[in-house]
Every structure is written in structure tokens, then in C-alpha cells.
């Protein structure tokens, strides 16, 4: 059984932690260099977040001038944002599309990953290989026909149009199939003997056992859906249906963008992905581990 309380990638029993402290000066120097480089990388990675939060409390003019201390404009920025943007509506659009899209993608892609791995046959192997080829076809190549299809179906400017094309993701199917290789086949045998039908095995055994895999996939899919830009930009046409990403993006292309207000909006737009990440972080690491095996 894997230890599901694995705290972090690279975690190892503490036993050898102290015994391996480098002793010679060269090793100490190298170690110091590693810390410096990682610190710079961490600073560069995190600073923009700090900048964003600070920016949300400052006036646009100060932000452009590079002020990086907290100001007192938070409520003004919020007020401006909420008068210019129907925030609730826009947030709802994003949330609906991301949540429903993620749930459907998880379900449909994991079903397929399970199906490809558990029921191998020559024909299905060929189909899978074909799908992997399609993985490298860029979205741009199908954008125009997709748009025409949805126009003809009179579905332009609907959530459905945004969600449907993303639901069956070859990348996620591939990910689930890889992870399923680590699913013990004896569990499935045991469940069959316990009288479960295949869909019950999937629902009551596979899904709970693979929850780390689902967690990692949730993060990846949710991020992709929440940040999806090009396709919603094409297919969502009226302001009341646009996602927060589209709306805030539109604000930045104003002639003189009000950065204080915009950064306040970006804090809102970033919160959900951050929350999901921190909620699922531990499982995410495990899930990735399983898939790379």
C-alpha cells in the first residue's frame, strides 16, 4: 500500500538528514549557491503576487510609478471595479464554466482512461495511438470550423459552446490512462467477486482509490478552464456572458488603464485557482507522482 500521507515531493525518512551535511568548504559554497539561486527564483516567482496585492491598494498613477508599499485606495479601487463591472454576474459565468467544465472533463476523460487501460484490444490500442497523434494539433487549426459549427447550431454566446469542446481532453485521458496502470488489478478482481458491476467498480472502488489522481487532474483542468481565453473570446459575445478573464482583460486594453481597479479585479480573478491549489496541493503532488511512473 502506498503511504497516502506523503507530505511532499522528495520527502524521505528523516534518518539520513543530519548525517549528510556536507563538510568540505567547496561543498558548503555549492550549497550556499543553491540556496541563493532558489531564493532568487522564489522571489521572482512570488513578487508579482505581492505586487498584485499591493497594487490593488494603490492609485493607478502610483502603480505605474512603481510604488511597492501598501496604499489606502483598496476601497476606491473596489468601488470603481464594481461600478464598471457586473462582478457577480461575471464571476458566476467563470465559476459555472470552470466548475461544470472541470466536473465533466474529469468524468468523461477518466472513464476513457480507465476504459483504454482496463479493456485492451487491438482496435482500441490503435484508436489510442491515433488520439496521441491528435494531441499535437493546435487549437488554432480547429477554431474556425468549431466557430462555424456552433454558429450553425445557434449556440454562440452560451456556456455550452465554451464548455463542450474542452470536455474530452486527450491530454487528460492520457494522464488517467497512465495513472490507471498503477491501479492494482486485484482490487478490480476482488470487487467483481464481491458482486460489483463494472460501473460500480469505477464509482465505488476506482474513483475513491484514485483520488490523488483526480485531485491533480482537477487542478490542471480547473486552471485551464478558468484561464481559457482564446475560445471564450471568440464564442462569448455579450458582456453579460463573458468570463472574468475576458472582462478584466478588456479593461487593460483601455487607452489609460486604471491599474488600481484592474489589479483589484485580478486579485478576484486569481483567488479561485489559488484556493483550489492550496486545498488540493498535497494530493496534487501524489497524483503527479502516480502519473509519471
Amino acid at each position: 500500500m502506498t503511504d497516502t500521507s506523503l507530505p511532499a515531493v522528495g520527502a524521505r525518512p528523516a534518518a539520513n538528514v543530519r548525517s549528510r551535511v556536507p563538510a568540505n568548504p567547496f561543498a558548503i559554497l555549492r550549497r550556499a549557491l543553491v540556496y541563493v539561486l532558489l531564493s532568487i527564483a522564489a522571489f521572482v516567482s512570488v513578487f508579482p503576487f505581492f505586487w498584485m496585492i499591493v497594487g490593488a491598494t494603490n492609485k493607478s498613477a502610483d502603480i505605474i510609478r512603481g510604488k511597492n508599499s501598501f496604499g489606502s485606495e483598496l476601497f476606491n479601487n473596489a468601488a470603481t471595479f464594481f461600478t464598471q463591472v457586473d462582478a457577480l454576474r461575471v464571476f458566476w459565468n467563470s465559476a459555472f464554466i470552470a466548475v461544470v467544465g472541470t466536473a465533466l472533463t474529469l468524468l468523461i476523460s477518466s472513464l476513457a482512461g480507465y476504459g483504454f487501460e482496463m479493456f485492451r484490444s487491438k482496435v482500441r490500442e490503435r484508436i489510442f495511438a491515433l488520439l496521441l497523434l491528435f494531441l499535437s494539433i493546435p487549437f488554432a487549426a480547429m477554431m474556425v470550423p468549431l466557430f462555424v459549427m456552433f454558429s450553425q447550431a445557434k449556440l454562440v454566446n452560451t456556456y455550452t459552446a465554451v464548455i463542450l469542446p474542452t470536455v474530452a481532453s486527450i491530454f487528460i485521458i492520457f494522464y488517467f490512462r497512465q495513472a490507471t496502470k498503477a491501479f492494482p488489478s486485484e482490487l478490480r478482481d476482488a470487487a467483481k467477486i464481491d458482486g460489483l458491476k463494472e460501473w460500480q467498480i469505477f464509482l465505488f472502488v476506482y474513483m475513491p482509490v484514485m483520488r490523488s489522481t483526480y485531485a491533480a487532474a482537477t487542478i490542471i483542468i480547473f486552471m485551464a478552464n478558468w484561464n481559457n481565453y482564446l475560445w471564450p473570446l471568440i464564442v462569448l459575445q455579450t458582456a453579460e456572458n463573458k468570463t472574468i478573464t475576458l472582462i478584466v482583460s478588456a479593461l487593460t486594453s483601455a487607452y489609460t488603464p486604471d491599474y488600481g481597479m484592474i489589479l483589484f479585479g485580478t486579485v478576484l480573478a486569481t483567488l479561485p485557482t489559488l484556493v483550489i491549489f492550496f486545498l488540493l496541493q498535497r494530493r496534487f503532488v501524489e497524483g503527479m507522482l502516480g502519473a509519471v511512473k
Binding site: P48, F49, W51, M52, G55, I219, M223, W226, N227, Y229, I244, T245, V248, S249, T252, Y259, I262, L263, G265, T266, V267, A269, T270, T273, L274, I276, F277
Partner: peptide
Amino acid sequence: CVTSLIAYSTI
């Protein structure tokens, strides 16, 4: 990579 597209381009 968890930040939103719009946040990071604005930032």
C-alpha cells in the same frame, strides 16, 4: 502557473 492568465499579464 496557478495564477490566472489575466492576473499575470496585467501584473
